[in-house]
Amino acid sequence: MPAPLLRAIDIHKSYDQTEVLKGIDLEVYQGQVVALIGSSGSGKTTFLRCVNLLEEYQQGEIDLDGQPIGYRMANGRRQRLSERAVSAQRARIGFVFQSFNLFPHMTAEQNVMLGLTKVRGMASGEARERARSWLDRVGLSQRRDHYPYQLSGGQQQRVAIARAVAMEPRLVLFDEVTSALDPELVAEVLGVMQDLAKSGMTMIVVSHEMLFVRDVADRVVFMDGGRIVQEGPPAQVFKNPESERLRAFLGRFHGLFGA
């Protein structure tokens, strides 16, 4: 087996006094789609934010391509890297937010281009070409000159996905990207994600869309109370939940996983 693309080792994270992540270990291999499931407050978002260095954590290590990110050891002490250094590392990891977070003063195309020109240092012609081809790919070639407020939630989220993947990150993190959408718009976004998964993109997906998880994920990870309780291929995790918590959690999606 090759080395994992992403490896999280014993991540602990507290807000004030409350420990929210209590030792997360996770390995993600190139091309894998890992689905993170669990009830509200179990720490899924917090973990994704730690991976993308949007949050600091008190203990543990995250390696990307075998290299630690976010922190370094200096004289035996763990030290946060400078914000500049962290920024460069973030560019290698895409993040898609539940609330889209498109830049409101930019068109769809400009949203996708910003990182390409300012972070990747591309000439604007080349960046525009790439932005257009990604907007095309997510089905928005007709909408590239629209501002976010002129787009539906589903369209905004597809722009946000294009913005993340156009940077050619090593992996992309999706945090409940369909939960803020009207039901009829969910499918178009999931379709784009399925297409990305098929093309070999490495992804960690937090989602309550269990059909999507079952059909697209290579591995399912169930989190509860800041810990990983069970992980494995979807069929196995869904058929043989080993804990009462997971059984109760899956029970909410009645009928989906056999009787």
Binding site: R84, R90, F97, L114, G115, K118, V119, A164
Partner: peptide, 23 residues
């Protein structure tokens, strides 16, 4: 959320101010 999105695509602190926060 705008600052966060700017962080997530890898903009440096100065770039975030310049291209997102100020406009």
């Amino acid at each position: 959320q705008y600052r966060e999105a700017a962080k997530a695509i890898g903009l440096t602190p100065w770039q975030r101010q310049r291209y997102v926060v100020l406009p």
